[in-house]
């Protein structure tokens, strides 16, 4: 699970930073009004949305796993007693 969260975080950074650098380098040269802020904001919003959702889901999976482990130890203890 943690691996999944880390991968998601890594990928998001991977996507955002070079994307931004690349865009700013290649776009600003031309004469057109670039409005770079808006491009950056829109892409950022979308990837942030995906990333936060992945994080949220990872957190829920982690909670569930902890809960299962708790139950398992409980069951083991009970098996020992009886």
């Amino acid at each position: 699970m943690r691996r999944f969260v880390l991968a998601a975080a890594f990928a998001s950074i991977l996507v955002m930073l070079p994307g931004y650098a690349f865009a700013s380098a290649s776009l600003q040269v031309e004469q057109h009004p670039t409005n770079l802020r808006y491009i950056f904001a829109a892409f950022m919003a979308i990837w942030a949305g995906y990333f936060l959702y992945a994080l949220f889901m990872g957190w829920r999976e982690l909670k569930l796993r902890r809960y299962v482990e708790e139950l398992q130890t409980l069951l083991k203890d009970r098996a020992k007693k009886s």
């Binding site: 990928a11 991977l14 996507v15 070079p18 994307g19 690349f22 865009a23 290649s26 776009l27 031309e30 057109h32 009004p33 670039t34 409005n35 770079l36 808006y38 491009i39 829109a42 892409f43 979308i46 990837w47």
Partner: peptide
């Protein structure tokens, strides 16, 4: 996702009326 970023921000040609902002279109 990396491929999309490359294609949308770099590879795709400039849209002449809207300018670069039109690149949002490729994810929107």
């Amino acid at each position: 996702v990396l491929l999309v970023m490359y294609m949308a921000l770099g590879w795709a040609p400039l849209e002449t009326t809207e300018g670069h902002v039109q690149r949002i279109f490729y994810v929107h």
